Simulated scan of single mutants.
Amino acid sequence: MSKGEHAQIVAVAADRAHRFAKPCRAEIRLIAGLGVEGDAHLGRTVQHRSRVAKDPSQPNLRQVHLLHSELFDELSARGFVVGPGELGENVTTRGIALLDLPEGSVLALGDEATIRVTGLRNPCLQIDRLRKGLMAATLDRAADGSLVRKAGVMAIVLTGGVVRPGDAVHVVEVPAHPRPLGMV
């Protein structure tokens, strides 16, 4: 990002049904403690089908899925054309290194909403249903050989509010004792 630019929201998406891709919207409303209004993953307890099957009483640490649009640029260079909402994210950003944030970081989205980052989204085989080979393209290896998951981060809603494309996104708080993001 060059001087004078700021991180922003590129797109927002929600879907009432449990489908992989989510249609983009003009705006979404975040509801504190629940997630995205009108989205299939809204709730205090886990809503992702595979997690509900294991234990439906688990807290929902995946209320909001954020994805950096820079991943689309990277995927495009590898021959995969993917756009906002297609990987199931609710909020597509540009100019903020989501994957570098420590667990517990608080982000402000637009003028009202705040969220707390809970962890990494683990890419699943549904990504390959969108484009064959796409899941592997969302994974990488760090210099130490560890797996790098690039399919975005998950968060819970602290303060509700309306979020729109073009809104600013910025880090409000980083934990005093930061821990790297794990899968949630």
Rank of each mutant, 00 (worst) to 15 (best):
P59I: 05
L107T: 03
G38I: 01
G110C: 07
A21N: 11
P23V: 06
V172R: 11
I127Y: 15
F20L: 15
R16V: 12
R44P: 12
D128R: 07
I127K: 09
D111H: 13
T114Y: 08
D73R: 05
E37L: 02
A32D: 07
L66S: 03
E89R: 06
M154V: 02
D55R: 01
A155L: 03
R149N: 13
A7S: 15
R164K: 13
R164F: 06
L75W: 05
V184K: 08
L158V: 11
H18A: 15
L181A: 04
V153C: 14
D15Q: 14
C24I: 04
V10P: 08
N90K: 01
C124S: 12
I127Q: 15
R78G: 03
S69D: 10
P59K: 06
L158P: 13
P84T: 08
V81C: 09
Q63S: 01
G4I: 00
F20K: 14
L34H: 08
Q126N: 14
L42R: 08
R78H: 04
V184L: 10
H18I: 08
G43I: 13
C124T: 06
Q58S: 14
V148K: 03
P175S: 03
G95A: 07
A151Q: 15
I96P: 09
R51F: 13
L147C: 04
N60V: 06
G83I: 04
G104P: 11
A26N: 14
N90S: 09
K22P: 03
D140C: 05
D15F: 12
P56E: 09
V171N: 11
R179A: 13
G110D: 12
A13F: 00
A32C: 12
L181S: 02
G152L: 02
E112C: 13
A13W: 01
L30V: 06
P180W: 01
T92M: 11
A108D: 02
N60R: 06
M135H: 01
Q126L: 07
L147R: 11
A26L: 15
V169T: 11
A142E: 08
S105D: 04
G161T: 05
L71V: 11
G161V: 02
A26V: 05
G182N: 13
E5C: 09
G38Q: 04
F20W: 13
R51P: 00
L87M: 13
S76G: 10
H6M: 07
L99K: 06
S69K: 01
P56R: 02
R29I: 13
P123D: 09
D39M: 04
Q8G: 06
A108F: 01
V106W: 03
L139K: 04
P123Q: 05
G161H: 12
G133T: 05
V36H: 05
S50K: 09
G110R: 02
V184I: 00
